[in-house]
Design a protein around this nucleic acid. Structure first.
Lengths: 356, 356
DNA sequence: ATGAAAGCGCTAACAA
DNA sequence: TTGTTAGCGCTTTCAT
């Protein structure tokens, strides 16, 4: 193949840079940059010339190059479990809130809670302009460090920081509402099903990650235990993995091993649906064991599932997190905390215990 | 505040670069770079010196800077709907397959099918080293163009290209299996519920996006229509949005307007669960209207849902897509097509029609 | 309002 | 095996 051929091919393949646009429009690279960023001090004529050159060349700015000096126009969202409907609602809300802005959302999902820290680092390595994290197990230190450079919203944890903002549910209220509901129905043997948490700081989870008592599940557990004790009842905490089928298996094991409770409060709807699965497999209906969840995911309201749950609006949480970040990127300095309201959704999965 | 104070603060805040590591280790920047990339020609001593300097400084390479010359070590995955369980299974599989590699996964979710093209551009703007896309509505042209620069796997579409690879389900076989099943049960009035597709090329969906007859839903629809006609039956296609609640609403409207079918084949499980919701709200059980889905998501096997479905293993699709990309990044030139096997999962949502 | 030029943090090509 | 240096494509001063 002749060198002419080769160079022609190369020219055709080469993607245009800002220099090409500048040449095409007969202006400087700086001028093109200003038009791109909609910066102050460009004449209408300039905007027009550059704009049409961009179109003609199908020019797209490289984010990597922009990130070297300016912004990446990217917001990173870390979620600890892609198969959890509450978390996907958060993503959905964030996506919607970002739609009209010039920022893009990239999601870093994670296989297991213990990987969250790494996923967050990976997002900051990619120079995101702002960060949303939902993981309970990231060390406060790491979050403080990162939020000094990068506007950060922590979802779920009732942390206070002068650097990052938080969006939380009213976990204490939500749990109180649910416990009241179960007590009023007449339940006394009530189990709590919780995701298991790594117990020791590991290389992956260095010191400082240790649950601060401010993560949602900690709070719910504490309220649960307190309320049970107040009533003179024995707390019954069952641990499980995070997937629906994990919960199903854990609950089946629990049913084998112990005198049956009359109700179970699952830490989230994904787990609650797993409990319902286990119960149905054993032929246990809601009149024998009441099941309650948390999050009010779409499936909870399905008539075949009809799961009593606490609605903390993941969708709105995602929206609010983005809103807070856009404010920060707009210049706000002081940190803000938003607590979403909760609503108890009563459905068929909870009812009076037989012996009541 | 004195300038000394200021500069101290700055020094403390400044994140280390490869130059700092080089200085700390007393070597050149190129040497550090080689250690980072595990490149050929570094002595054990060098590796050690540099490694410990990296640790001491808590150095992290900036992906933006790396992307300018070399790789971003990032694989981008575009999915058209974050609330679809089949798609989250794909992500899950991809995540798992990538775990031991030096690449990171970033997910670009999208609010509506029409945004897919933009999401893909946004991933290439971010210099991903490789790309996975699941969207049926991206133009073949765009995919050809991108896959010339960036290794690409298209999931779902039965396309052939010399540039990109594909991972598909056996849509024709799957649909045949399901139609056979419904016919064998004795159904004759069978509806097909499909996601609605934008009909005209728009600015967002320029010419060339037009369904090629190779996208999964097109194929399933064609097979459905063919089989119905072969039996001398009238095809009954109902269109809906993509969310469970869209499907529920669309199906309720359909039930009002027409003589009831005895069975409905939904394009995916998310939609099928929405149909079950609608039916239950109207007090219609599986003995009156059989419901079949596609994808065999987790919820399909839940005893309270018990949805007959076609399993095409989204999890494996995600894994295979990543495997193909890693092969490409390793040097493979020729394009490859993988078709996953399908399995019919028979459950309680389908049964003989009453009048049979 | 526009342009010239320095430089962001890396990697690749080449030299030693 | 290690080091030197040019340069990736932008944005940001600072002139004009």
């Amino acid at each position: 193949m002749s060198s002419t051929d080769g160079s022609t091919r190369l020219l055709r393949q080469r993607v245009p840079t800002i220099a090409d646009v500048a040449r095409e429009a007969g202006v400087s690279r700086a001028a093109v940059s200003k038009v791109l960023r909609d910066a102050y001090g460009v004449s209408d004529q300039m905007r027009e010339r550059v704009g049409s050159a961009i179109q003609r060349l199908e020019y797209r700015p490289r984010v990597a190059a922009r990130s070297m000096r300016g912004a990446s126009y990217t917001i990173g969202l870390e979620i600890p479990q892609i198969t959890n409907d509450f978390l996907t609602m958060v993503v959905h809300g964030a996506l919607e809130a970002l739609h009209e802005s010039s920022y893009r959302l990239i999601v870093a999902p994670v296989r297991s809670l213990a990987d969250s820290g790494r996923a967050i680092e990976s997002l900051t390595d990619r120079q995101v302009d702002a960060l949303i994290t939902v993981s309970p197990l990231v060390s406060q230190q790491q979050l403080e460090r990162i939020s000094q450079h990068t506007p950060t919203v922590v979802i779920g944890r009732h942390d206070h920081s002068s650097h990052f903002d938080t969006v939380t549910g009213a976990d204490s209220t939500g749990t109180h509402l649910m416990m009241d509901h179960l007590f009023e129905l007449g339940h006394r043997r009530i189990a709590l099903l919780q995701p298991r948490v790594p117990q020791e700081p590991t290389p992956e989870l260095p010191e400082g990650w240790v649950p601060t008592g401010r993560d949602p599940h900690d709070i719910r557990k504490r309220v649960y235990v307190d309320r049970m004790r107040q009533k003179g009842l024995l707390p019954l905490v069952v641990e499980t993995g995070t997937e629906e089928l994990d919960a199903c298996a854990a609950w089946l094991r629990f049913l084998e091993s112990t005198e049956r409770p009359t109700a179970v409060f699952a830490a989230n709807d994904t787990l609650a649906v797993g409990v319902l699965r286990a119960n149905l497999e054993r032929g246990i209906g809601p009149s024998e064991i009441s099941v309650a969840g948390y999050d009010d995911t779409t499936i909870a309201s399905h008539p075949a599932i009809s799961l009593t749950s606490v609605d903390q609006s993941g969708h709105r949480m995602g929206q609010d997190a983005v809103r807070l970040l856009l404010e920060r990127l707009g210049g706000r300095q002081e940190s803000l905390q938003i607590e979403e309201q909760v609503t108890l959704r009563l459905r068929g999965s909870t009812s009076n215990p037989r012996d009541a």
